[in-house]
Design a protein around this nucleic acid. Structure first.
Lengths: 154, 154
DNA sequence: TCCGATCGTTGGTCGCACCAACGATCGTGC
DNA sequence: GCACGATCGTTGGTGCGACCAACGATCGGA
């Protein structure tokens, strides 16, 4: 941008979305350097945390929409990081599980992610980092709770 | 999400992008309630601040990519909020200016935006709001300066 | 057995950001 | 005076994240 002072540049919502844009860029560049993107990490991490599950369950656990889950699993399965097997006890379902290579990839992604946090917070002191995390957690909890208010009007 | 504690949920980059997601949603809902979106506000605000200009100049001032500028101006021109006139002194250029209705719309958008900031920061005290703004400004300035490093390696 | 719920899948939409290429026009150096 | 590089507007893409509607197949409870 040519002008360092536009009307909106001091607004909290602007500061937030712009800073988040930088964060997003750092994170996805980090993931891209290992040939992955955000959804890949989230799916692998979810599998590592709760073990194999159906696509619908993985969607609920990871916050990835079921329809995006299909593509994500396709991509990871093509790379041999994840396996899709029919669930014998319910023919509607697939059971998704991580391969050994998938676990290695997850370790790489987590390493990238840790380095990214460092780069992101670089100019802040430890105290400031804690303060920022606190403030953002407060904000996020607040808006998440008001999030999908479970049809509150019915 | 089903699980309240995924691996990544404490990461600063996650807190940042998620909170920013809420902010974005609040802002665009506010704009949408007046029939606009983010680019419309940014363009109108830029026009109000610096006056009429060519599309390329507006792009540099607002941070909106030239190619997106075309569509944005088309939309605003269709609504009669903005006018596109050939620049007599340079036949490559169009001069874009705001109409009276455009100014009214900008006032509506700014009102929406102010209300949105309030909703966004609702759970924070005034001190916390200032702290958050400071921390985000520091982070943003840091990453912006390292932003497009002006071919630093040449 | 029937009916509503769930599962996976396809093929869209939207917003923001960015890129390549093109013809038209401009302006500077020669 | 003219040729060439830069600039301008425009078109038609890309990517990512998030979400939606609809469909056939399957399941399970009444």
């Amino acid at each position: 941008m040519e002008t360092p002072s536009a009307r909106w540049e001091g607004l909290p919502s602007w500061l937030l979305t712009q800073t988040a844009g930088h964060a997003q860029r750092l994170v996805s560049d980090g993931f891209a350097s290992v040939g992955a993107r955000g959804y890949h990490y989230r799916l692998l991490a979810t599998l590592a945390e709760h073990g194999p599950a159906s696509q619908a369950t993985l969607g609920r656990r990871s916050g990835i929409h079921v329809s995006d889950m299909v593509a994500t699993i396709n991509e990871l399965a093509d790379e041999g990081l994840v396996e899709r097997a029919p669930d014998p006890s319910d023919r509607r379902r697939n059971v998704i599980s991580m391969t050994a290579e998938g676990k290695r990839q997850l370790r790489r992604l987590e390493k990238q992610l840790a380095e990214t946090q460092e780069r992101l917070l670089e100019p802040l002191s430890l105290e400031d980092r804690a303060r920022l995390t606190d403030l953002l957690s407060t904000l996020l909890a607040h808006h998440n709770s008001r999030g999908t208010p479970e049809e509150p009007w019915r």
